[in-house]
Write a protein that binds this DNA or RNA. Structure first.
Lengths: 349, 349
DNA sequence: ATGCGTTGATTAATCGTTTAATCGATACTC
DNA sequence: GAGTATCGATTAAACGATTAATCAACGCAT
């Protein structure tokens, strides 16, 4: 059963009759060890099932090999994608990922960061709450927000994505578009709107409906009255997230308005259900794998003190490119503009 | 700027002219220290901003104060709820949470667990892949699956939830129900189906459509043909997750079948969009906060070697109660059975 | 006065790894 | 052949916290 206590460096050193330092050097490839002995050391290390003690190493080197991940609100439906990508990137860079939740309030974000630092993380990846700036904390930070945000490390090209979507809708012939946003405070949403407007061009009329504001005046889950807007001439609804897009889509369908025949609906983020609903949702997918890879790489470079590790004036790390293109997922919910919706049947709300 | 190096025990000891051991004793409250001196030590510790080194402590005590969290697939839309609840519970118990992703494959699950153990976690919380058993690994494990699963630590009462939902549908007068499941291998889904059948009673005809199987024969995102089933007399669709419920809901709507007037749709899990779609989705919410609390508590009890810490024959920790009730969220997508759907308009697919 | 128990503090060892300093021994240069 | 690199390995000192063992001092009963 070889239930022997976990093997450590001195166990290996002892079985081979050498010193622990030599073993350490051999395994890390740092000091000077004869290739032949190094080989034997690696062999016995493997056969003994040696795995270095993170605690011992951390104590000596001052680095834990752990990154912290802070999200505005862990309950965000985007979280799975993000967490998976970050974990994957960190793991293949030899790092673990400790999660920190800043559930809601802004000051909680700082709290979460401080807790992670107290736990000894080597660096932190923050997806900041809308409008928040990351003040100078005592460890390397990668910020994933918007290419336009000062101090941003790397992020999706929300503007470019919006532009592509806008162009798509314009080419379909839409002339009145309603943009459905959550809150004007979000950098991400501002970028997406800017891009949408640019892509739609000056000939297309685009208005914005802020859901947060709507919720305040009409109650939390009140209908948005989209059917009336269709009657009024709106033929496309561009949600700034798939969540609001699905909300719009179902509200239209429930009112008897066919999507995409009578009205188009588009979203952002390609959340998991976007492809399974009927009609499947035209949306923009973020390349989270690439974003995560870059963020982690930049962070690790600074942590390891590599020459390519660079830091902004705000103390955040900088990646190769701070903007990663989004990918338009053309699906069924967007189509050519309906010729005339004024006499469409729908209306229930 | 007091950029002094991080204060450690000896820094405190030095400023007060006492030994580090005394400081350690005072702060941990373990050894024998005069109350007056202990007070002074705590004061200076606070004023120096002392925070214990996790590495040092881990090396000495062998415990890191970190729990691992392993999920079947991090991309699961339930992940946010779970992660947030676990992080919260762990945090208030003084533990950090390290995430491990077993992205897909079953053997990856074991890999993820081993990686976490190598990182020195004190315990692991696993939400196992369907049908997977957790073999004896070298550290305390809490399993969140199904009350009926052998070795389960704590979980939602999926059966009871299903029963409640079944009763709800029966009371609405439905006589033919289609249950929409993903895969028959899932313990959770089996329980939910069992409960649904029990709640519906013997007078209600209930069939199951397995989406995974359907995808294999008809292609990944093929329509489920629900409109035809409505014509055939089915008046209620019970999704085993909100994801499939929304899929069903939109497919029905797109086919011109009014929900809940012509057909009811229900789900499980109360995922984030369930409340914002139209009609909002009747579903069952899990009490993840309570589940997480119990799992963490049980795990920590075993880790700390407390007398109330108990372990099953399979090596998993046991909680106070292994079953937490689900909560029926009555919303708009379920209603009384339509008298006759045979001549309903809908049909497009 | 001797012995004993208690209190309040210190000493010193230990956890496992890294790394600068050291030290033989061999090889090379002039 | 004496001085000097170079190579290959060892020694020993950290890193910061915990904890068993020890110790001085004091009170108190015999």
């Amino acid at each position: 059963m070889m239930k022997s206590e976990k093997p450590n460096l001195s166990a290996i050193a002892h079985t081979l009759g050498v010193s622990v330092a030599t073993v350490s050097n051999a395994l890390s490839g740092k000091g000077r060890v004869s290739t032949e002995l190094a080989e034997r050391i690696r062999d016995t290390a493997r056969s003994l099932g040696y795995v270095p003690s993170v605690a011992g190493r951390a104590l000596r080197t001052g680095r834990t090999g752990v990154l912290g991940l802070v999200l505005p609100d862990i309950a965000n439906p985007l979280f799975p994608q993000i967490a998976q990508a970050i974990e994957q990137a960190a793991s293949s860079a030899g790092y673990g990922v400790l999660i920190g939740d800043s559930r809601g309030a802004v000051e909680q974000q700082t709290q979460a960061i401080l807790r992670l630092i107290d736990r000894g993380v080597d660096g932190i990846i923050v997806i900041p709450r809308r409008g928040t700036r990351i003040s100078d904390i005592g460890c390397p930070v990668a910020v994933i927000d918007t290419p336009a945000t000062p101090g941003n490390t790397v992020a999706s090209d929300h503007w470019g994505g919006g532009e592509e979507m806008g162009r798509h809708l314009r080419e379909l012939g839409h002339e009145r578009v309603l943009i459905l946003g959550g809150s004007p405070l979000s950098n991400v949403q501002s970028d997406r709107i800017g891009g949408l407007r640019a892509g739609l061009g000056s000939s297309v009329r685009a208005e914005v409906l802020w859901l947060e504001q709507h919720a305040e005046t009409h109650g939390a889950d009140a209908p948005l009255g989209l059917a009336a807007m269709v009657k009024d001439g709106v033929t496309a609804f561009a949600g700034l997230s798939d969540l609001t897009a699905v909300r719009a889509l179902t509200e239209l369908q429930a009112a008897g308005i066919a999507v995409p025949e009578a009205a188009s609906v588009t979203g952002f983020d390609d959340l998991i259900w976007s492809s399974v609903i009927t009609p499947s949702l035209t949306t923009l997918r973020m390349d989270m794998a690439e974003i995560a890879r870059q963020a982690v790489q930049a962070l690790v470079a600074v942590i390891a003190g590599l020459p390519q590790g660079r830091v902004t004036a705000l103390g955040t790390v900088v990646a190769d490119s701070n903007s990663v293109p989004m990918m338009l997922m053309l699906r069924q919910s967007s189509g050519p503009r309906a010729v005339d919706n004024r006499n469409v049947e729908g209306d229930e709300a």
